[in-house]
């Protein structure tokens, strides 16, 4: 079996994950919880969670700044 050239994405920092998603965007979701980006990167479920947490935080921050 050949050694396949697999992109090594497991050691990405949180900042790198968020930058990857922002720059390339999501191509599609897999039922395993993995997310495939438009540059072909497979994000693992825990890596995608980093991005989700960031989005949730941003929503909460924006909502919190409203005067009701």
């Amino acid at each position: 079996m050949s050694q396949l050239a697999i992109p090594q994405d497991q050691d990405l920092t949180d900042g790198q994950i968020m930058a990857l998603v922002d720059v390339h965007g999501v191509a599609y979701f897999h039922s395993s919880g993995c997310v495939v980006l438009k540059n072909g990167t497979w994000l693992q479920p825990e890596q995608w969670q980093v991005h989700l947490d960031k989005m949730i935080n941003e929503c909460e921050t924006e909502n919190g700044s409203h005067d009701y």
Partner: peptide
Amino acid sequence: GLLNAKDGEQY
């Protein structure tokens, strides 16, 4: 050509 980096498998 798009393999899951974690296990090297095609899905």
